[in-house]
Simulated scan of single mutants.
Amino acid sequence: MKATPSIPLMVILMMFPQIVETLYSPALPHIAAGFEVPQAMAGQTLSIYFLAFALGVVCWGILCDHLGRRTALLLGLLLNGIAAFAALWVPSFDWLLTMRALSAFGAAVGSVVTQTMLRDSFDGIALAKVFAYMGIGIAIGPVIGMSVGGLLADLSGYRAVFLTLCLLAVLLFGICLQRLPETRLDGQLPGSIWSLSKRMVKDGHIWHYVTLVAGFNVLLFSYYLQGPFLFQRLGLSMQAFGYSGVVLALGTLIGSAVNKGLLQRGMMPQRLLQLACLLALTGAIGVYFTETHLGFLLPMAIIVAAFGIAIPNLLSQALVDYRDQAGTAGALFGLLYYLLIALGLALVSLTGQLGGSLVITALLLTLATLLGKLRSLIPLGSR
């Protein structure tokens, strides 16, 4: 009999990777100063994080089809905690990058395995509604991460952040060890990875969703990358940057609530994605013209509201045709969009400009959505 996981526990696990990253983000200026590296180089740790995260998504997604969802998740949490603890004692910036990569590799289980367990247990509109709850969890994650991270960074520097990350992984490991069920069906055997890869690479639907998921994540994480340095230029503390997560969380909560309400009224996911792109472009333009003062947080909240609308629909719809190999398909899908996120954030780090980066990303998202709509209008036999 198939076990159904606890929704609150699934929300916490979905939040985990985002908390790990946003708790770390306020420590970037302290890391730059402590290891005597330029701010742009310290910012590259975020790109390294997503590159390793992408590889972790592939590993844990495949392993959860072979070893089971529960075993894969516990191993990932264990690796994350070990890497966070080791980061406390690294002698150089290069070693810090290595530990950050291992930490990200382990944290990836919170994304791919959690999504796989949800796809095991729900489908259709029920799955979309469950992912809407995940969106609410994503809204809370940055508040916890940025607020706690900003406070820790200002009080005790980056080492306090790494210690907290280690304790968080240990706590979550203990909870999952006691309460996390196995959702993979008995006798459900993984198919050929190579055949699945070829099928997905040829699937234009998959590439469309990969582009959109990556783009909305770049919009969100550009703030976590450039925000600390922008607050420095405005003469504000990292604790203030941490508290800014409350404003962003409010935006995401509003977006998630709007998404849930419109789904219940029967609005189709594609219409919701169009609304999200319009909001994202509006917010990006607003940030571009207001980033010289703290008022830029209002249009930034519009962007995260768009994120709260878009991501639940994208994640619930992307792999509807791949339920027979949910873990591996989720791994390959995650690999593609996390590689794009890493590339996008590397470019954002090089530009050093928040507003301009947001406008370009939002324009690309709008173009991708329009192309997807045109593609859906073309008869299948004409493609």
Rank of each mutant, 00 (worst) to 15 (best):
S6P: 03
L9W: 03
V11L: 07
L13T: 00
E21W: 09
L23G: 02
Y24R: 04
Y24F: 14
P26L: 13
I31C: 03
A32W: 10
F35D: 04
V37T: 05
Q39K: 09
Q39P: 08
Q44H: 09
T45K: 06
S47L: 03
L51M: 09
V57F: 01
V57W: 01
V58F: 09
I62Q: 04
L67F: 08
L67M: 08
L67I: 05
R69L: 09
R69D: 12
F85L: 15
L88H: 04
W89C: 06
L96R: 04
L96W: 07
T98K: 01
M99Q: 08
A101D: 05
V113C: 00
T114I: 01
M117D: 14
D123E: 15
I125D: 09
A126V: 09
L127T: 08
A132Y: 07
Y133Q: 10
I138C: 07
A139I: 05
V143Q: 01
G145Q: 04
G145I: 05
S147L: 10
L152I: 13
A153G: 02
A153T: 15
R159W: 03
C166M: 08
L167F: 06
A169C: 10
V170K: 00
L177D: 10
E182F: 01
Q188Y: 03
L189N: 04
G191K: 05
G191V: 11
I193L: 03
G204F: 12
G204T: 11
G215C: 07
N217K: 01
V218A: 07
S222W: 06
Y223G: 06
Y224D: 11
F229Q: 11
L236I: 04
F241Y: 13
V246M: 11
L250R: 05
I254Q: 02
V258S: 10
K260C: 09
L262F: 15
L263T: 08
M267V: 14
M268D: 15
L275S: 06
L279R: 12
G283K: 05
T290W: 10
H293E: 10
L294V: 13
L294D: 01
L298E: 05
A301F: 05
A305K: 00
A306L: 07
A306C: 14
A318L: 02
L319E: 14
V320F: 05
D321T: 09
D321N: 15
Q325G: 08
T328H: 04
G334H: 03
G334I: 07
G334A: 04
L335W: 02
L336C: 13
Y337F: 15
Y338G: 04
Y338W: 13
L343G: 11
G344D: 13
L345C: 01
L350P: 06
T351N: 12
G352F: 05
Q353L: 09
Q353V: 08
L354F: 13
V359P: 02
T361Y: 11
L364M: 15
T366A: 15
L370S: 11
L371K: 11
K373T: 15
I378W: 11
I378D: 12
P379K: 13
L380R: 07
